[in-house]
């Protein structure tokens, strides 16, 4: 209703502009200016609210992290102090020194990056080609297979971990290339969601784009690779991030698949970390320091991925 009202308010003076006298026009201008001022005030209030919300959320997000950092700077290996310290007592970097000198930390990170990177690349490839077919081509069973894909995710994989183990054994990956096998499992686990996510984005891109490109002489593959994919960058970035992070600190399956060598340098970081734990005790200082260090690469990945989250660039340009 209010939409109609403002429309009439707005349009009337514009359409009759030629015949309005100066007084009417001034009244109209005052009204518009008032609205702009009001809107500015509202916008100011709005952004204050947004800042408040972001601050509250940041505190919520970082509150536990703060205690991880505190534990990492603590001298002894207790997680907790039974006193409330808001600043660490006797901070030291010993735990970080230990993490870098006594643990094969870089090897762990390298392995983890390999597993996550490989599963991301492969998963992205499988899901974007699949998503393109499901978005652009019409064939029988298309809707059904889309839904069946989602249904597959309902299987409780945690109860069938040994099945994944025997699968890799059967594929001869268990001994020869366990990290590769692991990344295949992660990739398969996230490919469905990734496909849905990308397909949803493809659907918002007009199919005329593809047709125009093909009329210009591009092959089907070139159209997909050179025209459609670049436009879908935000969705690809989001999906890549989801696959990457989903594999980053997975423990249960990795623990079954990977066998440590002498110093554990062939493990992913989370397995390496958990190995520091004894039957009862957890060396919290080392634990926390390693956790802080291994979180850094992911934050860097986030910052990098942000390049793709710039609003309103792509489609506006295309449609115009």
């Amino acid at each position: 209703m209010s939409k109609n009202m403002t429309q009439t308010q707005f349009k009337q003076p514009v359409s009759n502009q030629a015949s309005t006298d100066a007084h009417e026009y001034a009244k109209y201008r005052a009204r518009i200016e008032g609205r702009i001022r009001r809107r500015k005030a509202v916008a100011g209030f709005q952004s204050a609210l947004i800042y408040l919300f972001l601050t509250v959320m940041t505190i919520f997000a970082l509150f536990p992290i703060y205690f991880v950092i505190q534990a990492s700077l603590g001298g002894n290996q207790n997680l907790y102090s039974t006193d409330l310290h808001l600043l660490p007592a006797n901070p030291s970097l010993d735990n970080y020194v230990y993490a870098f000198t006594q643990e094969p930390l870089l090897a762990w990170l390298g392995n983890t990056l390999f597993v996550c990177g490989f599963s991301t690349l492969l998963g992205l490839f499988c899901s974007m080609t699949g998503a393109y077919a499901l978005s652009r081509f019409r064939f029988r069973g298309r809707k059904l297979s889309l839904n069946l894909l989602l249904v597959l995710q309902a299987f409780p994989a945690l109860l069938a971990i040994s099945a994944y183990y025997y699968l890799l054994q059967y594929l001869n990956l268990l001994d020869s290339a366990p990290l590769l096998g692991l990344s295949l499992i992660y990739m398969a686990g996230s490919v469905v969601f990734s496909c849905w996510n990308i397909k949803g984005y493809f659907d918002t891109l007009p199919v005329e784009l593809d047709q125009a490109a093909m009329i210009d002489g591009a092959t089907q593959w070139q159209t997909f690779w050179r025209v459609v994919l670049p436009l879908a960058a935000p969705a690809l970035a989001a999906s890549a991030l989801l696959i990457f992070v989903g594999s980053w600190s997975e423990f249960a399956i990795a623990n079954y698949i990977l066998n440590a060598n002498d110093n554990g340098s062939n493990l992913t970081f989370i397995l390496g970390l958990v190995r520091l734990q004894g039957d009862f005790r957890t060396p919290w200082g080392y634990f926390a320091a390693t956790a802080v260090i291994t979180s850094v690469p992911l934050v860097v990945v986030f910052l990098f991925a942000q390049r793709f989250f710039k609003s309103g660039l792509t489609i506006g340009g295309v449609k115009g």
Partner: peptide
Amino acid sequence: LVQQDQLVDKSITALKG
């Protein structure tokens, strides 16, 4: 020497295979 977390579960799975 191979260090394993959840040693028993893992041994069972491997030995069965």
